[in-house]
Amino acid sequence: MAVKCGNNTIMLERPVHIINAACIVGQKEKEGPLGQYFDRFEEDDFNMDTWEQAEARFVEETYRKLLSETSGINEAGVDCIFGGDLLNQCMASAIGVKKSGRPYLGLFGACSTMTESMLVGSLTVDGGGAKNVVCITSSHFCSAEKQFRFPLELGSQRVPSSQWTVTGSGAVLLSSEGEGPRITCVTPGVICDYNVTDTNNMGAGMAPAAASTIMTHLADTGRSPDYYDMVVTGDLGSIGHALCKDILKLHDVNVTDGLYKDCGMLIFKPEQETCSGGSGCGCCASVFSAYLYRLLKEKKINKLLLVATGALMSPVSAKQGEPILGVAHAVAIEN
């Protein structure tokens, strides 16, 4: 059984392996620097009538891809699915997994949902309540623009601090048996409010949360940043990444650029006009599933701290002038 360690961190005692990972991304993501790692990409509309259906299809196909590529497991072998997305009431995940016939628990942590689902999933496996669980999240540029910003055809200018929602879905299969990197400990994050109200600057809204969770994790476990081969945040983008480093430095935690990366910066090239970088539940999910997981598998890195970050806001809260609340959950993955 898992044991609490320090303030917020939970150490897992039984092995929880990430036995496989899969993702499907959109065209623009395929054209990015990680293009070679994305083995399947689709048109943004995925042959569906609406963007929401397209996003759901990304989820459905990713789930199928994950199961078909994992030997020794069939549909019935999945004990539970943890998933979420950015649409109202997690619509895409629900539609996407409805055909699976497996229990589904919807989670919402905005863009932090990937590590949130891995965190909850690994605790469930560790507690013995499940043997195999699937953690799946998605986001879609068009459906996110429609819900959070403006209609696609509206001629509006993006500001440099804004981010580009990743179109894609990523999923991992956690199991108590089998091969693969292990989730060893997890740190759920507290909500950080530093009165950021600019919805075009999500990175700044989430950076304190990322720094807070990283610091809590390090303090609770007594580790230094160098313990890890890589510390990766979810979708802070270039501005949020710089701010997160500033905040860590302010509290005497020094991380180098080589050690500390951000999925939002990894997934797009500057020439792709994504301003500050990628964002969305699909950002961390696809970068982890396609790229970081492979690095772990190939033993190019052995210890990874994955910290997906989320901006807990809605169109209503933004219009009412509520600040953007940041949250970040950390998952330590080791070979």
Binding site: Q27, K28, D44, F141, C142, P151, T167
Partner: peptide
């Protein structure tokens, strides 16, 4: 007409 995806 339909809105066009902005992936390119």
């Amino acid at each position: 007409t339909k809105p066009k995806s902005k992936s390119r």
